[in-house]
Simulated scan of single mutants.
Amino acid sequence: MSKQDYYEVLGVSRDASEREIKKAYKRLAMKYHPDRTKGDKELEVKFKEIQEAYEILADSQKRAAYDQYGHAGVDPNRGGGAGHADFGDIFGDVFGDIFGGGGRRRSQARQGADLRYNLEMSLEDAVRGKHVEIEVPALHECEECHGSGAKKGTSPKTCPTCHGQGQVQMRQGFFAVQQTCPTCSGRGKIISDPCRKCHGQGRVERSKTLSVKIPAGVDTGDRIRLSGEGEAGELGGPAGDLYVQVHVRPHPIFKRDGNNLSCDVPISFTTAALGGEVEVPTLDGKVKLKVSPETQTGRQFRLRGKGVKSVRSGVQGDLMCKVVVETPVNLNQRQKDLLKELDDSMGTGDEAAKYRPKEKGFFDGVKRFFDDLTS
């Protein structure tokens, strides 16, 4: 009985890529596996054909021989040696990426952990930028054993349980699960004579001082990454990174909103009514703010370019000054009489409304509200 074409068995074209062949095999193997076909002899034969086809087409040399000479080029009786793949090997190759590696050797070297340093700074320093020195405790490569963890003059040995893989495979029926090797904890090697300084860890803890440039315009939540300044890697792995997390302390005068600053500016009753100039603080010093006559509490004045320069775009923000009219306190009798005289001069009713339009508008609204309730 002649054999079916291997490409037809897997349902792929003759110019199919390795990835396409592997994908087709996965799909068919899961469909026709004996654990699923429940003893159906015909389907078991089909499964063996699928295995054989994949064994040939997944191997570049065997595939080339098959493409040139057909089945004769890979016939084991003629020296081709195709045969059938061991189920365990196929299981690891095909289903390994589903269950975690499938027996592929993992690198024993591990990258060091990333570290975070919380940096508190004033608003002034955040806006202008500065250089700061920070002291960071971290794990560093042991100078005695150079990170191997073994006593000087000795070296780690290959783990006898996982044979250096760092993982062991547990099989249950159709499924396999990769687990960290319990003997070497995933390192792939064991240390019989540990280094006295690091006790076999390959790393020791010590602090280091770093100079960090804080760019102008940073804000709370911004992070500065220092590559390779984290913890040392294990078994020759690269070091992690250090992230400096910025936190700007609250300011007694200014509040920040993105690139803009804001502050409350108290002004006298007289200045609010007649207008005038007041001194306003900025991060660069005091400036004069011209207040228009008849200014009300809550009005905002914008001082352009007196905010924060963006650390990303370079755009300069503004300073928003909110006016707060301050009611006079601790008045003497003469001052009270003058205010009373001023109030009397404004008259009552409609005459007073032209001096206090908001007051009249408010009480007119209140009157309409109660009239609606009683109507």
Results as ranks from 00 to 15, higher is better:
residue 188 G to S: 00
residue 47 F to G: 02
residue 159 C to K: 02
residue 177 V to N: 12
residue 213 K to F: 14
residue 285 G to L: 07
residue 168 V to D: 12
residue 70 G to R: 02
residue 9 V to P: 11
residue 84 H to K: 01
residue 198 C to A: 02
residue 343 D to E: 09
residue 152 K to W: 14
residue 106 R to I: 03
residue 360 K to D: 11
residue 193 D to E: 12
residue 227 S to F: 12
residue 116 R to N: 14
residue 276 G to E: 06
residue 30 M to P: 00
residue 267 I to E: 09
residue 190 I to W: 09
residue 257 D to Y: 01
residue 289 L to K: 06
residue 138 A to R: 15
residue 124 E to G: 10
residue 124 E to H: 10
residue 160 P to F: 01
residue 57 L to W: 03
residue 282 T to M: 10
residue 363 F to S: 03
residue 254 F to L: 07
residue 94 V to N: 00
residue 103 G to H: 04
residue 79 G to N: 11
residue 263 C to M: 07
residue 83 G to N: 10
residue 189 K to F: 13
residue 16 A to P: 14
residue 102 G to D: 09
residue 329 V to L: 06
residue 374 T to M: 01
residue 344 D to F: 15
residue 117 Y to Q: 13
residue 214 I to P: 12
residue 273 A to E: 14
residue 162 C to H: 03
residue 336 K to G: 04
residue 191 I to K: 08
residue 1 M to I: 03
residue 69 Y to T: 08
residue 26 K to R: 07
residue 358 K to P: 05
residue 68 Q to W: 15
residue 62 K to L: 14
residue 152 K to L: 13
residue 112 G to S: 10
residue 48 K to N: 05
residue 115 L to G: 06
residue 231 E to I: 01
residue 342 L to W: 08
residue 287 V to T: 08
residue 100 G to C: 00
residue 114 D to C: 01
residue 53 A to M: 08
residue 37 T to V: 11
residue 332 N to C: 04
residue 69 Y to N: 14
residue 275 G to E: 11
residue 245 Q to C: 02
residue 280 V to T: 07
residue 186 G to T: 03
residue 37 T to P: 08
residue 31 K to W: 15
residue 222 D to Y: 13
residue 65 A to K: 04
residue 270 T to P: 01
residue 130 K to Q: 10
residue 216 A to F: 15
residue 114 D to N: 03
residue 364 D to C: 01
residue 292 S to Y: 01
residue 11 G to H: 12
residue 169 Q to E: 06
residue 247 H to K: 14
residue 77 N to E: 09
residue 82 A to M: 09
residue 150 A to C: 05
residue 361 G to C: 00
residue 169 Q to L: 10
residue 50 I to D: 02
residue 358 K to S: 02
residue 120 E to H: 05
residue 37 T to W: 08
residue 319 L to M: 14
residue 307 G to M: 13
residue 354 K to R: 12
residue 210 L to Y: 14
residue 265 V to N: 07
residue 323 V to T: 12
residue 330 N to S: 04
residue 177 V to I: 06
residue 231 E to V: 00
residue 22 K to C: 01
residue 72 A to C: 15
residue 140 H to W: 09
residue 286 K to W: 11
residue 251 H to T: 06
residue 337 D to I: 04
residue 248 V to W: 01
residue 274 L to Y: 11
residue 300 Q to H: 13
residue 114 D to P: 07
residue 192 S to H: 05
residue 320 M to A: 09
residue 162 C to E: 03
residue 254 F to C: 05
residue 200 G to H: 03
residue 53 A to C: 12
residue 375 S to V: 05
residue 267 I to T: 06
residue 195 C to Q: 02
residue 47 F to I: 01
residue 100 G to Y: 01
residue 204 V to T: 14
residue 272 A to K: 10
residue 231 E to S: 10
residue 22 K to V: 03
residue 224 I to L: 14
residue 366 V to R: 04
residue 154 T to M: 11
residue 141 E to A: 12
residue 372 D to P: 02
residue 293 P to M: 04
residue 135 E to A: 07
residue 336 K to Q: 06
residue 324 V to N: 13
residue 286 K to S: 11
residue 189 K to V: 12
residue 12 V to I: 11
residue 196 R to K: 10
residue 1 M to W: 10
residue 91 F to R: 00
residue 248 V to E: 02
residue 134 I to T: 00
residue 136 V to E: 13
residue 204 V to P: 15
residue 365 G to N: 09
residue 25 Y to H: 05
residue 116 R to T: 14
residue 44 E to G: 06
residue 51 Q to G: 03
residue 346 M to I: 06
residue 89 D to V: 11
residue 165 Q to D: 10
residue 62 K to Y: 15
residue 144 E to N: 08
residue 35 D to M: 12
residue 314 G to T: 06
